[in-house]
Design a protein around this nucleic acid. Structure first.
Length: 197
DNA sequence: AGCACGATTAACT
DNA sequence: GTTAATCGTGCTC
């Protein structure tokens, strides 16, 4: 299936975060192919959003978010975990969607190998976990998400009916001031709605 | 040049 | 429920 076009990402970040639920994330590594259905996302939008890295304005790290949509923004946190985001918006409006969890589809053997000691349920149910399972690291920062020839892209997957998508506050923002701490910019879907993807 | 901390995780008690 | 692991980033001196 074709990757989603750049026009999908060049929209309001919160809408893109919601619409990415149910889409299929594909990781290409040579002849290997690992994929999964996106089941949890979070939106980070604008310099005014005090939870977004862009609160610091344009810096070497955030520069990617000021550029065109459809690029990967990958960064390291706590010195050991990589986070995968997709750049959104455009026209100098910075924003990105954090991919927080996926349901594995292809490459299960490779995932199991990279997640040794973990039960299947916890293979990719966190942003740092899915990056480890899919071998997503800093070298993928800036890569084009809209090309099937690239290392990472997203396809349509299964259309999820809007009423099965839950919204809630973003995770890990204990020290972020309101209203940003409580914005319902986290989106999730129940696993039961993913049968037959 | 130094420092405090983070969009987390896994292994503890 | 609590905490160590581990380092790039942005801010202060």
């Amino acid at each position: 299936m074709e990757p989603l076009p750049v026009t999908f990402y060049a929209r309001d970040t919160v809408e893109v975060a919601r619409d990415l639920i149910g889409k299929k994330l594909v990781r290409r590594e040579g002849k290997n192919r690992i994929s999964g259905v996106i089941i949890e996302t979070e939106a980070y939008r604008g310099e005014e959003d005090l939870a977004c890295h862009c609160r610091a304005g344009r810096t070497p790290r955030t520069e990617i978010m000021y550029g065109p949509a459809g690029k990967a923004y990958v960064y390291l946190i706590y010195g050991m975990y990589w986070m995968l985001n997709i750049v959104t918006e455009g026209d100098g409006n910075p924003g990105a969607v954090l991919i927080r969890a996926i349901e594995p589809l292809e490459g299960l053997e490779i995932i199991a190998e990279r997640r040794t000691g973990q039960i299947r349920k916890t293979w990719t149910d966190g942003p740092g976990k899915l990056c480890r399972a899919l071998n997503i690291k800093g070298d993928l920062n800036g890569s084009n998400i809209c090309s099937a020839a690239g290392p990472l892209y997203i396809t349509q997957g299964k259309v999820i009916s809007p009423e099965t998508i839950q919204a809630g506050p973003r995770v890990g923002l204990e020290s972020v001031p309101e209203p940003w701490q409580s914005k319902a910019w986290r989106f999730m879907v129940n696993h039961q709605h993913l049968r037959g993807v």
